[in-house]
């Protein structure tokens, strides 16, 4: 079975919002209709986004570090939003595990958004239907696109390659390897939703250097060392044992 997913590397995400804008650009231009932008140039601008980059400060000043955190639908393997939908508009595809909303069936009751602990779903203020990340289902299978462009718009646009896309059920895929080898984790695992999207943690490259590595204690080339080195010893030496 296939489970397509994103793996987001927090170690290299710089919080540039390129994924946010390219996601909006692609998905607002599609046949499913635009994603509303209310008051774009006035007070309280608001609109529908499938993907947002949030920023968090970890630690207490001055020992702080900033984590940029892109958040979109995690395409859970046990999606809690699907069974609660009264119309069947919310569904998980058997063939690739993408969780989708059928905009023609959605009645806009918002019940699925209550049942998502991640806040991944947003009601479009104009179309009055629930919207969320589709993993660019209209890109990744499009044979009119060159093969290397059959990727979600956010993955295409990421300048630091912080976003990987692939099948997490295929153990040899890049995403599976990244999860396995770089400690990929899921968000809020305590709810048992089994999110398909994974995050890779911040990783620090550290080198521990001890004092004796900077300065050799027994430097045979030092003047002092040479003296003691060449002084006759009380203990038996190699020369007592062997004959050359």
């Amino acid at each position: 079975m296939t489970q397509l997913a994103l793996v987001i590397d927090l170690n290299v995400c710089v919080g540039c919002h390129a994924c946010v804008t390219s996601c909006k650009e692609w998905n607002t231009s599609g046949p499913a209709g635009s994603m509303v932008d209310k008051n774009p140039y006035k007070e309280d601008p608001t609109g529908t986004f499938f993907n947002r980059v949030q920023s968090f400060e970890i630690g207490t000043y001055p020992q702080t570090e900033t984590v940029h955190f892109p958040k979109s639908c995690l395409h859970c393997e046990e999606p809690p939003c699907v069974p609660v939908c009264p119309t069947g508009a919310s569904y998980k595809r058997e063939e690739d595990g993408i969780v989708l909303v059928d905009y023609d069936k959605c009645i806009g009751c918002k019940y699925c958004s209550w049942a998502c602990p991640y806040g991944a779903r947003e009601l479009d203020e104009k179309q009055k239907v629930m919207k969320k990340c589709t993993l660019c289902v209209d890109r990744i299978y499009d044979e009119d696109l060159p093969e290397k462009e059959r990727l979600p718009a956010c993955v295409m646009s990421c300048p630091t390659s912080a976003r990987l896309f692939g099948d997490i059920h295929d153990e040899n895929s890049d995403v599976s390897k990244a999860i396995r080898e770089d400690a990929g984790y899921q968000l809020m695992p305590e709810w048992g939703t089994k999110p398909a999207n994974h995050y890779l943690p911040r990783r620090k490259v550290k080198m521990t250097i001890h004092k004796d590595e900077l300065e050799r204690v027994d430097n045979p080339l030092s003047k002092e060392e040479r003296k003691t080195h060449n002084a006759p010893s009380d203990s038996p030496s190699l020369e007592d044992m062997t004959t050359w």
Binding site: D44, F49, V53, Q54, S55, F56
Partner: peptide, 11 residues
């Protein structure tokens, strides 16, 4: 949290 990805609120 420093930023939530939108300036004017969201759904």
């Amino acid at each position: 949290q420093m930023a939530q990805g939108s300036m004017g609120g969201s759904f």
